[in-house]
Amino acid sequence: MATVFNGLSFLQQRNSMPRLTGPGPDAAELEEMLQCAMRSPDHLRLRPWRFLSIQGDRRQAFGELLRESLLRRDPEADQGAQDKALNAPLRAPLLITVLASITEHPKVPAWEQRLSAGCAAFSLILAAEALDYGAVWRTGAFAEDQELVRDMGGAGNEEIVGFVYIGTRDCTPKAVPTMVSDNFHRVW
């Protein structure tokens, strides 16, 4: 008898996986994840998201861009901080930079387009986990660097929403704490 997928249990047990290794998704799996991400809420079908996938040797080249970004913010950054920036993309076999591509529109404000891109990032994570990979969404100062967007080939209207790292789990997942919805919800 086939196992029935329990979507609610899957969502309730979702957990970021910060330690990842190879193998990562193949081209067909990446395409499936992108198809899921592109189903995110999208008012007036502006498609306000872009995805830049980085894998293989390109991760080292991206590490160089992160080091340059660090040095723009902190020209006195020590070697340890520079090494951390250089090695950040090597934390997983696949890194997807999610960009919000903001379009001036009278009915769809920029904040709504950013939320749509954020939903796309989360959909990537859910799709990766549905394919039995681990994933983690990272931001930080690099995500606020508009020059980094340009260095990656992004347009002037694009902003980094986050970096989604995807690969095979390399550690035991942390226990997911039980949360009480009453702490976050009330009837109005």
Rank of each mutant, 00 (worst) to 15 (best):
D78L: 04
A81Q: 13
A81L: 14
Q82M: 11
Q82C: 15
D83M: 13
D83K: 12
L86N: 00
L86C: 02
L86T: 00
N87C: 13
N87A: 15
N87D: 12
L90Q: 14
R91Q: 14
L94K: 00
L95E: 01
T97V: 15
V98H: 03
V98T: 11
L99P: 03
L99M: 09
S101R: 14
S101W: 10
I102Y: 02
I102S: 01
T103A: 07
T103C: 13
E104M: 09
E104C: 10
H105E: 10
P106D: 10
K107L: 10
P109Q: 02
P109G: 07
A110F: 04
W111N: 03
W111A: 09
E112L: 10
R114N: 07
R114H: 15
R114C: 14
A117T: 03
G118S: 13
G118M: 04
C119R: 02
A120C: 09
A121H: 09
A121D: 06
F122K: 08
S123K: 09
S123C: 11
S123W: 11
I125R: 01
L126Y: 12
L126C: 10
A128M: 01
E129A: 01
E129T: 10
A130F: 12
A130Y: 09
A130Q: 10
L131V: 08
L131Y: 04
D132Y: 12
D132S: 15
D132V: 14
Y133R: 08
G140N: 02
G140S: 07
F142R: 09
E144H: 13
E144K: 13
D145N: 06
D145G: 06
D145P: 05
D145C: 07
E147C: 11
L148H: 00
V149F: 03
D151T: 07
D151V: 03
M152L: 15
G154R: 04
A155Y: 07
A155W: 10
A155S: 13
A155D: 13
E158H: 02
E158D: 07
E159Y: 14
I160C: 02
I160P: 00
I160Y: 01
V161I: 15
G162A: 08
G162Y: 01
